[in-house]
């Protein structure tokens, strides 16, 4: 064997599989479906870990928590979580979740989906669910582009960022999601990045326990498309960028937290206020109008 061959063989030494090792998250994951589809250095897996940790921290009964996703990379989130999970159509995660949340008021419904799904094709549902203050938590994973379909420009693509349908750079103004959520009526609004893993975990726990419409934007590295097209390195380089350029500013005026291309990212808990939920308001109002005639909706009435 020549020296080169020997080196090559050594490099390819395959370590033994470690099947007896059980990750603490496994009880919350559909292990039979792993490995997941997300690229190396994508941050969605990290956000899933934060979601599970936040759920554990909230001490909610996991049997009474349902997760809904739409379509896209983040839309696959529901499929890996060992909770009641629904993978709906593109943009319709929030109305599907509205059906679950109103159909069974004992459920806490979380929507984990992407910026394209929730804000572009599903934008109307987002603002209306926030307006009604439906009891649900939105985890909006923002990677600044449509990654699943090949890196097209979306409603959050920063000005001048390159995308496959913005080959000369994006010239549309992007949404400022915390401002959109707040002005639509969300009672809890926060933004973190995939790097702010503990703060994100805390935010998810808080949001899950918050009655009403809570909205968390999570900035997430997309290595294969957004980072590559914009020559930003890989996901790790983006995490380093978040480290150097994220500014924690709790209570910041959401009008001032818009994101420019490779600009500073203001993160923090922006809004945390009290407002009756859709169901609280409905029940209280109808009771005041109908008195004894009013029968509150109590969940499935199916004869079982």
């Amino acid at each position: 064997m020549s020296e080169t061959e020997q080196e090559f063989t050594e490099t390819l030494t395959i370590p033994p599989p470690e099947e007896d090792l059980h990750h603490p998250m496994e009880q919350y994951l559909r292990m039979e479906r792993l490995p997941h589809i997300w690229c190396s250095t994508c941050g969605i897996g990290t956000i899933i870990t934060a979601f599970i940790s936040g759920l554990q921290k909230s001490e909610l009964d996991r049997e009474k928590v349902a997760v809904v996703s739409g379509i896209g990379c983040s839309g696959r989130a529901a499929g890996y979580l060992r909770l009641d999970s629904f993978h709906s159509t593109h943009g319709r995660a929030i109305p599907f979740a509205t059906g679950l949340a109103l159909g069974n008021p004992d459920l806490k419904v979380a929507v984990i989906s992407g910026d394209g799904d929730l804000v572009a094709i599903g934008g109307n549902h987002l603002i209306h669910a926030a307006r009604r203050n439906i009891n649900m938590t939105i985890v909006c994973i923002n990677n600044f582009n449509y990654a699943m379909t090949g890196g097209q420009a979306g409603p959050t693509t920063p000005l001048e960022a390159n995308a496959s349908t913005a080959p000369y750079g994006c010239y549309e103004f992007p949404f400022n999601l915390p401002y959109l959520a707040e002005s639509s009526g969300a009672v809890y609004v926060a933004r973190w990045t995939a790097l702010h893993i503990r703060r994100l975990t805390n935010a998810i726990a808080e949001a899950l326990l918050k009655p009403g419409f809570s909205f968390i934007e999570v900035i997430c590295p997309c290595t294969t498309l957004y980072a590559r097209r914009n020559r930003l390195g890989d996901g790790l380089d983006l995490m380093r960028f978040y480290h150097d350029n994220a500014i924690i500013r709790h209570g910041a005026d959401t009008r001032e937290v818009d994101i420019g291309f490779q600009d500073r990212i203001i993160v923090g808990k922006f809004i945390d206020k009290e407002k009756p939920t859709f169901l609280e308001k409905r029940d209280q109002y109808l009771k005041s109008k109908l008195g004894e005639q009013f029968i509150p909706y109590k969940g499935p009435n199916d004869g079982h």
Binding site: L21, H23, T46
Partner: peptide, 25 residues
């Protein structure tokens, strides 16, 4: 769990005690 790893390097980068090092294997 070596076989699950996709080599992103997040763990190595952010370990506050520099416990980890990416393998050449």
């Amino acid at each position: 769990i070596v076989e699950r790893c996709k080599g992103c390097g997040f763990c190595e980068e952010y370990c506050p005690k520099d416990v980890l090092e990416m393998s050449t294997d």
